[in-house]
Design a protein around this nucleic acid. Structure first.
Lengths: 153, 153
DNA sequence: GGTCATTAGTTGACGTGTCAAGTAAATCGA
DNA sequence: TCGATTTACTTGACACGTCAACTAATGACC
């Protein structure tokens, strides 16, 4: 008769699978984006958030909430992307504490190119690996996990 | 009539959800483990891998493959955990290049305690947020994503 | 058995993120 | 309306990983 060890609990493995799937996917997609355009996946994530904004501009505040970074982390990320000329800080006219972040023309251009590359990667490494029904289910399940674990720091 | 922008493609959002679910979950579980036992989630991951090994011992090689780290990263991670007394390096008798990593008594003890905490967290933040069927589907879907994106460096 | 290539793991230099303290502006309250 | 909080962001010190170069041992082949 076998001992059933607590470390072998299947729920731990479920979580482990999520971690591993995330690690593998981000790794591949990051590599593809870097090779094609020299763009780190994290930069792309920020460009995407800004590019999707209604007025083409986002306050730091919202970028901090949207990315899983601390405020200091976002400050530095924006520093680098700004230095690369893809993004610019714009002072907010109504609240001088606030910095808006907007895409430069080069940033717009980069976002378009990068999205094409990224989309090919997602299709190949994520969508094609699953049945259509499974993709649909993922889209139902994942938001529940996001909503549930609540805010951060 | 609305323009459909390429950046709004739903597949990008699907991937984004995976990233966000991962970020939120690991953040919560890391905090819980740190608060309860002062143990970072990454340390737990390594302890778990070692603790699950058939002979209670794993060569660095396998830890590198199992975690999503580079060899240098694992060397330093093991350095720190070893300095904390939870793990020890054991020279391999048949191949003097190889270092085996095994749990110390304190490491065993920590692994047991941490697993209890971790399991409560997974239950609360992951399992309870989903229906039983959804958990089952996750367990079918995630391995496909892992297998598909292949190896690393 | 002696070269050559390969494999395991470590290390120095560095990039990127965190934490906590700091600055400046807005807001709240007597 | 003026001091006390709070909010938005930045910064210095530091923790943690990566990359590429390095050491040591093994294996392969002539």
């Amino acid at each position: 008769m076998e001992e059933q060890r607590i470390v072998d609990d299947e729920r731990i493995t479920t979580f482990g699978r999520l971690v591993e799937a995330h690690a593998r996917l981000t790794n591949v997609l990051d590599n593809e984006l870097r090779e094609a355009l020299g763009l780190p996946l994290r930069w792309y994530g920020l460009l995407l958030h800004v590019g999707r904004s209604p007025h083409g501009v986002r306050p730091m505040k919202e970028l901090i909430e949207a990315t899983a970074f601390t405020s200091g982390g976002v400050t530095r990320l924006v520093d680098r992307i700004e230095r690369a000329g893809l993004v610019q800080r714009l002072p907010c006219p109504t609240d001088r504490r606030v910095q808006h972040v907007g895409l430069t023309d080069a940033g717009q251009e980069m976002l378009q190119r990068a999205t094409a590359v990224h989309l090919r990667g997602i299709q190949e490494h994520m969508i094609d690996a699953l049945d259509p029904g499974e993709v649909k289910r993922l889209n139902e399940i994942l938001p529940k996990l996001v909503a549930q674990s609540g805010g951060r720091r």
